[in-house]
Amino acid sequence: MMSIFKNSGTRKNTKISFRTDDETLDQLKAICRIENRTISSLIESILTEYVLIHENNSLAEQEKRLSPRKKCSIPAVILADKNNKKSYFNCLIKSLSANSAQLVLKKIPDEENFYSNFFILFKLPKNDHPLLVSSQLIRSKCLENECMIVAKINCDSDADSEMLQKYLLKIEFKDNNDKK
């Protein structure tokens, strides 16, 4: 996450608990393994981000993209090839659209510039078919121990493109119903 989620030195003395289904718990555990953090830390950062968004007049209202990215939390792998040397990076897709993705990954050691072209391998929730999309770097920003990458993505097959569109429409439909 961003630096705003760093521990500000205040003591955490309030506990909360909640119930969730097994699938959500499994996904949280997978994200925690990728990000090398505890479930408690992950949930706290998600809640903090949610509160900050609502304090700052919902980012959704400020969206100006032709194809807005939808928030998500999908574990993924970046596959990059530079000078015939393949590199793999675990990451988390934080938002996704039909033509772009925002990814968060642990800071890449000894890399001043991230790869300009790479592939992203991921599986959409409740779908067994993995997607492999070619990507072009739009921008990246590294802070302390993680990097945020925004990439233009391209589904290489019609089936993958259709699967992504259905997923995005499902999220949009759910978001619109939640607002009612």
Rank of each mutant, 00 (worst) to 15 (best):
N90I: 03
S100N: 02
I4R: 04
D128T: 07
S95V: 04
L132W: 01
N117Y: 10
E112Y: 10
L105C: 12
L59I: 06
S135G: 00
I171T: 05
L92E: 04
I93D: 01
C147D: 06
K86E: 15
P125V: 06
V104G: 04
T38K: 10
N127I: 11
I16H: 12
L52N: 04
R139M: 13
K94M: 13
K141G: 09
A151N: 00
V104M: 11
I120Q: 00
S134E: 08
A151S: 12
P68S: 00
Q102M: 08
Q62L: 10
F122M: 06
D156I: 01
S140D: 15
S100H: 00
D21C: 13
A98Y: 00
S161W: 01
K12D: 13
Q165A: 13
K166T: 11
L164G: 02
Q136A: 12
D110C: 04
T10W: 05
K152S: 12
L124A: 03
K94Y: 12
C72F: 05
V150S: 09
K64Q: 11
E146G: 10
L66E: 08
S161R: 12
M148K: 11
K180I: 15
R19K: 12
K152D: 07
F89A: 09
A30K: 13
E111A: 11
T24N: 14
S161C: 10
T10K: 12
G9Y: 05
P130E: 07
I138A: 09
F122Y: 10
E44F: 11
K15F: 12
K174Y: 05
A159G: 03
D110L: 09
D178A: 15
K123F: 03
E162W: 02
L52V: 01
P109D: 10
E146L: 14
L47Y: 07
S40E: 11
I78R: 01
P125I: 03
N84C: 07
D22M: 05
D26C: 14
F114D: 00
C147K: 05
S135Y: 00
S157N: 09
Q27R: 15
D175Y: 13
H54F: 05
E172D: 12
I78K: 02
K152H: 13
N99W: 00
E61M: 10
V77L: 15
H129S: 05
I153R: 00
L137M: 11
E144W: 03
P68H: 02
S40I: 06
F119N: 02
N145D: 13
S40Q: 12
R11N: 13
L121Y: 09
D81E: 15
D158I: 11
